[in-house]
Amino acid sequence: MKCIKTILFCFIFSARAFTGEAQTYMPGVTAVIPDLPQYHPNLSLYQRQMQVTASKYEAGYNRLKADYDDLMNLELVNKANKANLEKYKVDVKEWADKNFAQFDLSIPANVDKIDRFFNGWYENKNVRDEIALIRNVKLEINRLKIKDPDGFFKSERYLEMGAIFKELEDCQPENISKLAWQHGLAF
């Protein structure tokens, strides 16, 4: 019975509290304190910023992915260069597996830093020379194909291009540019 009286008292008290004048915490002030206007954030601004950031991230990721794929798909002929490149590929793969997720790719400085690391193999002059020689041999073969589409593979120059690859495989990496000069494929 006591519980019912307590509930009834609370109900009556709360009904009286909400039916009279506005209640304030300042004695003698009876004016109603106005409600503050609600804050409505400009969500379109945030959305645009997120789209810009997402597009920067996507561009950075695509650039790094292309460079990474170029490195992993790069094949060289020279045995010494090939061994160095394979070691570099392993180092890059291990680094990428450990550290790639730590970088915000929407920041161009981060993308440039990773890109320089992925393209570090290109700083080796011997590798650059070999790539240039291979490119020039392919251009020469294409020139021969255009000149004689049906019999280019019988020509002496085409056979010479095949011999270059044999020589390139075993030559010293420092001598690759000399090899190109000897066969008229200077770069």
Rank of each mutant, 00 (worst) to 15 (best):
residue 2 K to T: 09
residue 3 C to W: 12
residue 5 K to C: 10
residue 11 F to L: 15
residue 12 I to W: 01
residue 13 F to A: 15
residue 14 S to Y: 07
residue 15 A to H: 04
residue 17 A to W: 12
residue 17 A to E: 09
residue 18 F to Q: 06
residue 19 T to Y: 03
residue 23 Q to V: 10
residue 27 P to G: 04
residue 30 T to R: 13
residue 31 A to G: 04
residue 31 A to Y: 02
residue 33 I to T: 09
residue 35 D to P: 10
residue 36 L to R: 13
residue 37 P to L: 05
residue 38 Q to H: 10
residue 39 Y to L: 09
residue 41 P to M: 01
residue 41 P to K: 00
residue 42 N to Q: 07
residue 47 Q to V: 03
residue 49 Q to Y: 08
residue 54 A to V: 02
residue 57 Y to K: 14
residue 57 Y to E: 11
residue 58 E to V: 00
residue 58 E to Q: 12
residue 58 E to S: 12
residue 59 A to G: 05
residue 61 Y to C: 02
residue 61 Y to I: 03
residue 62 N to D: 05
residue 66 A to T: 06
residue 66 A to F: 04
residue 67 D to S: 14
residue 68 Y to R: 12
residue 70 D to E: 12
residue 70 D to Y: 08
residue 75 E to R: 12
residue 77 V to R: 08
residue 77 V to E: 11
residue 78 N to C: 02
residue 79 K to C: 03
residue 85 L to R: 00
residue 88 Y to M: 04
residue 89 K to R: 07
residue 90 V to S: 13
residue 91 D to K: 07
residue 94 E to H: 07
residue 99 N to W: 10
residue 100 F to I: 06
residue 101 A to M: 11
residue 102 Q to Y: 11
residue 102 Q to S: 14
residue 103 F to Y: 15
residue 105 L to H: 08
residue 105 L to I: 06
residue 106 S to M: 04
residue 106 S to R: 05
residue 107 I to R: 11
residue 110 N to Q: 10
residue 110 N to P: 09
residue 110 N to S: 07
residue 110 N to F: 07
residue 113 K to Q: 14
residue 114 I to F: 05
residue 115 D to P: 03
residue 115 D to M: 09
residue 116 R to K: 15
residue 116 R to G: 14
residue 117 F to K: 15
residue 117 F to Y: 15
residue 118 F to A: 03
residue 118 F to P: 07
residue 119 N to H: 01
residue 119 N to V: 00
residue 119 N to W: 00
residue 120 G to D: 01
residue 122 Y to W: 13
residue 123 E to H: 09
residue 126 N to V: 05
residue 126 N to C: 12
residue 127 V to G: 02
residue 128 R to W: 06
residue 132 A to D: 11
residue 132 A to L: 14
residue 141 I to W: 07
residue 144 L to W: 04
residue 145 K to L: 01
residue 146 I to S: 08
residue 147 K to M: 12
residue 150 D to A: 13
residue 152 F to G: 01
residue 155 S to Y: 07
residue 155 S to E: 10
residue 162 G to Y: 03
residue 162 G to C: 10
residue 163 A to G: 05
residue 165 F to E: 10
residue 166 K to C: 03
residue 167 E to N: 14
residue 168 L to T: 06
residue 172 Q to C: 10
residue 174 E to G: 09
residue 177 S to Q: 10
residue 182 Q to A: 13
residue 185 L to E: 00
